[in-house]
Design a binder for these strands. Structure first.
Lengths: 216, 216
DNA sequence: CCTTGCTGTGAAGTTTTCTTCACAGATTCA
DNA sequence: TGAATCTGTGAAGAAAACTTCACAGCAAGG
């Protein structure tokens, strides 16, 4: 069950939304001010946040910025009066996922929420995919050595790598380099030299962390 | 080529050792005081340290403690006068790898160094082995889900896990749990419940780091 | 031009990992 | 006690990962 945080200073509006969303099968939590919202979001994560742009105290825009700091990938839908749609567009530039204009049609609201959640699910899948690739690459000791060599030497040619690993068959090295390329850890430039990608750099960082952990 | 740090206040003794070890095929660096030794060890790592127990200023014992803090797995050989062999034993309890008594036979010294370095190599292999196990465990998405479930719920029975993963064949789950047990990430108590080991906890920490890295 | 070394492909194989299934001893609980 | 559920073994097969080999284009250097 997806959870949604409703942030609005108007109690009646909060109650309305809560009823609509509960009926639609979501779990809801409400906050009446920006700081309350930030506090709640810090303690647990929500699948989406409905955030009023205009509130006394902290403005919706400020809250948006803070929420994005807490979780850069959190999904935030701005609620705005018709008159201030421009501001909503601005909010999207700052990381909001979408906006809806008050007064709104219930169906529009639900569709918007659904789309945004769908988007989140999609992104999570992408991430999981990367993870799978990365980890299955790391599972092989030859590939780990390759990564380390590339880390140490910045760029290397096929035969350098092959000799350094004392492997007789260079096609074996090609095979592993290929899987590293598929998982986006390594790339090859026009000179045919192999390099670590930015992601590869990150992964080797994590590898050393893991090594230290395991040897402690 | 293995590098050795020689720590002794006697310049003649340092020169002697340097000559012997250089000839034996080691690279040497010297330090005349404890603090100098610590400084050098902080900047780069040595395969072994030869450390005089009795020195003006910081005592060998204090230096030993500091060096161990810098690198818990660094190999330290204490050098001690015959009269203070008891202290050397004490040093071993504090983490020194071995000791030699002054005056010593050159061959004894070389053998001691060799054994200690051998030990280091062995430990490094063990570590690499653990790493291999851990990473090939993580390569499989089902096993990652299992780890996450166990992390969230502290302890779970076989069928709980099976249902949670919507897997129809429980023997499949048994298979993956078995490989997690082999790599020492999970264990089973007398109640047949599965738990994460301490190592498993560490690994999942690292997993989340990696995830954040990859999604950034 | 010919040789040598580098980079690569594609198609067998081999090995390892993963899945499935048939079965069976415990345990629970009605 | 008897039926249902849980936990597990072992073997056989399928799938994925890895290795090996035969071959080929291309560039550099004599």
């Amino acid at each position: 069950m997806k959870s949604i945080l409703i942030v609005d200073d108007d109690p009646e509006f909060r109650a309305n939304l809560t009823e609509i969303l509960t009926e639609a099968g979501y779990r809801t939590v409400t906050a009446s001010t920006g700081s309350e919202a930030i506090e709640k979001a810090a303690n647990r994560s929500f699948d989406a946040v409905l955030l009023d742009l205009i509130m006394p105290g902290m403005s919706g825009m400020e809250v948006l910025t803070e929420l994005k700091k807490l979780g850069p990938k959190s999904k935030i839908i701005m609620i705005t009066a018709f008159a201030t749609v421009d501001n909503a567009v601005h909010a999207i530039k700052r990381g909001a996922s979408d906006y809806i204009a008050k007064p709104f049609n219930i169906d529009d609201l639900l569709v918007t929420i659904k789309l945004v959640l769908e988007e989140a699910r999609f992104e999570a899948n992408i991430k999981k995919l990367d993870m799978d690739y990365a980890l299955s690459s790391l599972a092989n000791p030859i590939r780990r050595k390759l990564i380390r060599l590339l880390r140490a030497n910045k760029k290397m040619r096929l035969m350098e790598l092959t000799r350094e690993l004392s492997i007789t068959d260079h096609t074996k090295v090609i095979f592993h380099l290929k899987t590293l390329r598929d998982s986006n850890i390594v790339y090859q430039d026009k000179d045919k030299s192999y390099h670590l990608t930015r992601e590869g750099d990150r992964i080797i960082d994590c590898l050393s962390i893991l090594e230290n952990y395991l040897s402690a």
